[in-house]
Amino acid sequence: MSARLRAGLPAIALALGLLAAWELYVDLAGIGEQLLPAPHAVAQALWDSAGLLWHNFTVTAGEVLLGLALALSAGLALAVAIHLSPLLRRALYPLAVGSQAVPIPVVGVLLVFWWGFGIFPKLVVIALICFFPVVVATVDGLAAVDPEQPKLLRTLDASRWQAFRFAELPAALPAAISGARIALTIGVIGAFIAETTTPTSGPYPGLGREILSDVNFQTARAYAGSAILIVFAIACFYALSGAERKLAPWHTRARGETP
């Protein structure tokens, strides 16, 4: 058994235990399938509607990944601007905080008016929901450079840009990745919100919209779709941890393994 598989064993065991308890609960309590489908019913729905769910999933996965890419680039750019300019910090930070309280349906209509029924309005919604943790973590990471470091760099005649490029930026990378990890975990629910607030013209509207239309009469399929999203979020999270080992090996070495 590989080391990685062994590391995942407790989580798999716990998930199986929870599924068993769920199955038992539905059986013993006699809960209707419209209210809470049993795991075996969800598995059945997953099997029966595999094609439909898969096509919708590819739509949603694309939205999540592109939306996160947009959130990361916007978040990093904002963080750098806030770090380098006290004026921009005072101007941008409160607005960035406020942006997190915007109820998405309010702007959904406007986004569709601007950019239509395609993928772009959804990416904007996901980015709006996800960019904030990237900004906060990266700003803190950029500021966390040893206070003596700038003195040393100045006597080495480093310009402001060089101090940023050689010291601050790499030092902030682990923090930026932590921010990305938080963004990623809310990215999937962000895609759900995006799909359900901005209509789509394509043949497959995405898992979010599919789940929403199934939840009342095809509850088992709604659960199957949700299960796919959950597994996707977990997979993305660990993919990013793997990327961190490549991007910031000094950090993972110093801290030990990620969760």
Binding site: D146, E148, Q149, K151, L152, T155, L156, F166, A167, P170, A171, L173, A248, W250, H251, A254
Partner: peptide, 14 residues
């Protein structure tokens, strides 16, 4: 022109 070697080494970890 003088260069400083600070008390802590301040090597860049990466």
């Amino acid at each position: 022109p003088a260069v400083l070697m600070p008390q802590r080494d301040l090597l860049l970890a990466w």
